[in-house]
Structure formats: C-alpha cells, structure tokens
Design a protein around this nucleic acid. Structure first.
Length: 501
RNA sequence: CGGGGCGUGGCGCAGACUGGCUAGCGCGCUUGACUGGGGGUCAAGAGGUCGCAGGUUCAAAUCCUGUCGCCCCGACCA
C-alpha cells in the first residue's frame, strides 16, 4: 500500500489530487452528459448540511423561499443589456418541444417553439418579471425571497464542483424602496456568507467589493468572499450584488411612494453554490482524502465494531448501541451529535480507510479488548491515521462535543495560518510581477498579494499576462489609503490579487 | 474554435508499427478456506459485440475511410 490513501499527493499534482479525493470520498462522479456531475449520497449529504444551515440564516434575516421556472423566454432575458452580454455566450436554449421516431429508429426534434426558451443561467430576469407584477405600493416592499434551484451555464472547461455545466445553488432576490436599504441588504448577505464560511466551513475568507471588470453582469456593485485553496489560488465562494435600479428599469419594477410618486425599485441578488463543496475539499483535505469540518459533516462519529466471532459481535454491537444512545443526548452546534454504527461485514482495514477518505471527524473502534479494559479507541480525522486514544467508556459521550469543537476550531486556525503565511503586502509592479512569476513556477509559493491598485484598465493590462486578477478590495484589515502602483492614482486601500479558479 | 493525446470486462492498462490459434495483465467483484485492532494470504470463479459505421482481406482490436465521445494545453469563464 502507498504511504498515503490518495495518489498523487497535493505536492505532486494538485488538480489530479483534487479529482482523486472527490472519487475516493464518493462525493460525485462524471455523468454521461458533458460537464455535468452526478452528486452521490455522501456529497449530497454535505450539501444538505450546508443548505440547512444557510436556510436557517436566510429565514433569520427575514427571507422566505419560493420557486420560479427553469425556463426563461428569450425576450425576458433581453431586458438588461449588460446582463445579456454577460450570459448570452453560455446559455442552453430549448427550441423544440417534441420528439418523433424516424424510420431509422432515431428520435428527431420537432414542434419548433414560437419563442425559444433559455435554461436559466441565473434568475434575475424571470423573477424580476414577477416582481414587476407583485409590487405596486411602497407597502409591498421590501420583497425578500430566496430560491433553491439548479442553473445551467455552458462553460468551456468544467471541473467537478468548481465549475459544472449544471449546478445547484440558492439565489436570493430582493427589492427595496431605497438605495440605502438595498445596499444594506447586499452587505447583510455577504456578511451571512462570510459568517457561514468561517464558522461552519472553517474556511477563512476575504470579503469585499470587486473592481468593475469582475462585477456580475448588470450589477452596480458586486461583493464577494474569497478563500485561498491549498495551492495558493483564490476561489470565489459567494457573491452578493447591489443591482441598483438597472434591472428595475429594464423590467418595470416600480412602486408608488408614500407621496404618491412612482419610483423604480432598488434590487439585490446573492448566491452560493455546490462550488462550496469544492472549496471545503481544497481548504481542508489532506493526502489521505477528505477532511470535513464537524459542523457540515453528515456524521460526526462512526462506530467501528471489531469482532472475530458471532458471540463477540453481538457483545461489541450492544456496547456500540449503548454508547450511541448516550451520544444522542449530547449536542454540538446546537444539534444532537450525529453518529452511525458501521457493522458491514467487510474487512476492518478497508472500513477504517473508507471513513478516513470520506472525512468523518471521529472514528471509534470498539473490540472485546477495549470492553475488557473499559475503554474505546478514539481517532480524530485531523490527526494521523494511526493515532488513537483510549477513552474510558463512561467519559466518552460527554467528551465528544468538546473534541468536535476543537477539530472545528483547529481546522479554521490551520487554514487561516496557511493563508496568512502565503499573503504578502506588495508595493511595486516589480514586486508583484516577481511574486506571481515565482508562484507560477512553484505552486508552494503561490498566494495572495495585498496591493494598492486602482480600478483601471492599466492595472488589468499589467496583471493579464500573469493570469492574475483583482479578487476584491478587503473591507476588513485594510484601512491605509495609498497610491496605485500602476497609475499613481489615490486608492482607499489595498486590493487582493491572486490567480483564481 | 486552434494544437496535442486517447477510446480494449467496474477501474487502470498491454497487445496495434510488422493483420493470424480460445484478446492478456493488475486492481476490484463472487464463492470457499485460513485469518483477524487493520486496506492480509491461498484457491476456485464471474465478467469483454476491442467507441460506432463502412471498407480492404482467406483472416481485422491491429490496415484504410468516415463518424461520435472524452482528456490535456490555449482562447473563454457568476
């Protein structure tokens, strides 16, 4: 057996390592449809955890869920010029509504549609069309709606979880009476994402507005959270857009204010997707496979009964069931501790490694030897695969919540230390070019650079050959005004530059 | 769309240049035995229209033509 469960290792071939982790953890696999993945039960269970937590946060900030159609009439999409320009190149289009069997046994599309339908790449336009009908008075505002949905973007180069042709996400769409209120909403939701990323995914993020060239098509302002992956590249993990009145004007989303004057609404939209699963993998996993932060782990604890005979098996299983009952009374992150007993009749070593590769935070091995000693053998996924600790039976359940908390915190601290160690403050073009040229040659030195740059084409022109982009202008830890290293223009603070996924 | 590569049991590959007996190998799978705090050992099995279509030939995984699909690099990318 190789020294690590995943081959190649991160250092050897990072992109291939990523694919192998996805495979070994049984998160997803390639489907017969180009660019589209099948999300397998373990991957979907992680998504359900994320959904559950986020959905609670959306409700707590006053939002309601609804559902809008998958298909968007082309005419509907046409109403915001920049938006069309941004998405037209990557839309799947439905032109027919029937199949006929040809003499040679092939199915031929017939029944051409009067107006083609676009499979939604995002739903601003179809939702806006409905809001235009629903909103008449200032009393109808704000409208605060979220939908959980799938969307399709015909990307050139798909990558499992990170950029798939079809993906799952949530999209919030809100309409407000004032600019201030809409901006406040935009910021509130990027904060929700940042909190979720750091608290639940244990993934430190940099939060801030994007430069004009990186904005969502049709937005006045786009805020993102940016995380650093273990190869030093940035991953945009969530976005919140202040759409101004652009969509409202395009689609006639109007209301009468209390003075009886007709005004256009101010709208926002915000979303996170199954890309977050990719983000978690690339933030925490190691050369033995997936490492899951306990808050989003489908199971916190897996019990592994070890027995040689049927008699031993029933004895050991009874002990597992008893401990599991005790464990259910414990809470972690305000929920009962989640556990399972893996009593499958497969080889012990295979079983252990499967759970390591799937990232279960705690493994508990119980054999007759343990029972005789009155202990269980506890292993943590954030420690080496062979490390284990004997914990007295009577103390086990009560200790689990604190250990889970320790793992959750430890993963966050480790990821933050990694990011900080690979973050530089740079103050000249030469230093920026040198930093990213080095990073390209040697990915163990790639990372983020905090640099004063203006939102200007000259900056983009300098960064393009380095394949580097301005990720965002950090809102926190960034209080020193300066001058742009390219244009000499004054800037309010540094921007984060990086190569990105 | 440009450049390169690849389609052979579930997965990874060999065989192709120089056509020739029942198409091999590793992993995985099934069954049994020995095992048993570790992804073990031994034995016996199951599983393949060699991407698809046409052609050349006594004979095609192998040669020719066409076609479909996938991967990598680039262009592109909330």
């Amino acid at each position: 057996m190789p020294a690590t469960a995943i081959s190649p290792t991160r250092a050897e071939d990072y992109p291939e390592w990523y694919q192998q982790v996805v495979r070994a953890a049984e998160l997803a696999e390639q489907s017969p449809v180009r660019g589209c993945m099948v999300i397998k039960p373990h991957g979907y269970a992680i998504w359900e955890r994320m959904q559950g937590i986020l959905d609670g946060m959306f409700k707590a900030t006053g939002h309601q869920n609804a559902y809008f159609p998958l298909f968007i009439p082309v005419s509907c999409l046409e109403q915001e010029a920049k938006h069309v320009e941004g998405f037209a190149k990557e839309c799947a289009v439905v032109t027919h509504h029937r199949l006929e069997l040809s003499p040679d046994g092939k199915l031929i599309p017939t029944g051409k549609l009067e107006e083609p339908l676009v499979v939604r790449p995002t739903s601003e336009t179809i939702i806006g069309a409905m809001y235009a009908k629903w909103i008449q008075s200032w009393r109808d505002l704000p409208v605060l709606i979220n939908q959980w949905a799938n969307v399709v973007r015909w990307e050139m180069r798909p990558r499992v979880f990170l950029r798939t042709t079809e993906f799952l996400w949530q999209e919030g769409h809100t309409a407000h009476a004032t600019r201030e209120e809409a901006i406040e909403e935009t910021l509130r939701m990027i904060d929700v994402y940042a909190t979720f990323a750091e608290r639940d995914l244990a993934m430190p993020v940099v939060k801030g507005p994007k430069p004009s060239g990186e904005r969502f098509p049709g937005a006045v302002d786009t805020f993102s959270i940016e995380a650093m992956m273990q190869d030093g590249k940035a991953l945009q993990a969530g976005t919140s857009h202040f759409l101004g009145q652009n969509f409202a004007k395009g689609q006639g989303i109007k209301f009468q204010n209390s003075a009886g004057v007709e005004e256009f609404c101010w709208t926002t939209s915000w979303g996170v997707s199954t890309r977050l699963i990719g983000a978690v993998i690339m933030t925490h996993s190691d050369d033995d496979g997936l490492v899951l932060p306990p808050r989003i782990a489908p199971q916190h604890v897996v019990f592994l009964p070890i027995a040689r005979s049927d008699e031993e098996r029933s004895q050991v299983l009874d002990a597992c069931r008893m401990l599991e009952r005790e464990l259910r009374t414990q809470t972690f992150a305000e929920e009962p501790v989640r556990s399972m007993i893996d009593a499958r009749d497969i080889r012990g070593g295979d079983k252990v490694w499967q759970h390591i590769k799937q990232g279960v935070p705690l493994r508990v091995e119980i054999g007759t030897r343990d029972l005789a000693a009155g202990t269980v053998s506890l292993s943590r996924r954030d420690r080496g695969p062979k490390e284990r600790e004997a914990v007295p039976l009577g103390e086990f359940a009560a200790r689990v919540p604190a250990i889970l908390e320790d793992i959750q915190q430890g993963l966050f601290e480790k990821a933050r230390a990694f990011r900080d160690a690979r973050t530089e403050h740079l103050d000249s073009s030469a230093a920026v070019i040198d930093y990213f040229t080095t990073g390209e040659r040697d990915s163990s030195r790639a990372g983020f650079a905090w640099v004063p740059v203006a939102d200007d084409p000259a900056v983009t022109a300098m960064l393009d050959p380095l394949k580097v982009t301005v990720r965002c202008i950090p809102m926190e830890g960034n209080d020193a005004p300066g001058t742009c290293i390219v244009t000499g223009k004054p800037v309010t603070g540094r921007s984060v530059l990086a190569r990105a996924y």
